[in-house]
Design a binder for these strands. Sequence first.
DNA 1: CGCTTGACCCTGG
DNA 2: TCCAGGGCCAAGC
Length: 99
Amino acid sequence: MSTLLDPTRVHTVVARIPEGRVASYGQIAELAGYPRRARWIGKVLSAIPSDSALPWHRVIASSGQITCPRAQDAAQRLKAEGVSVSKRRVSLTRYRWQP
DNA sequence: CGCTTGACCCTGG
DNA sequence: TCCAGGGCCAAGC
């Protein structure tokens, strides 16, 4: 059986984002094979347990803004990886993941 | 089946 | 750089 939208595809792509880099929801959607499903990516990530090994904090908006509910937590984790965060914002020119 | 709700994105001013 | 408007689409009710 095959599901049209498979969350595990999203998990796989997110797991590939290197430490110290970030990717946008739209970028993840595209790489997972689901173009124009950026909003859905957010929903998928919100469903993973907080103690998951997935680097959900490396997924941000295309504007560079950290938009997840736990922005504070995400910022903390990113900083720990060497990413500079200012006003819930990350410099995409510096840290955007380029597969 | 229709309406609403989002961890979104792009364009234009 | 910031904001508004329009578009997008799965899920839930």
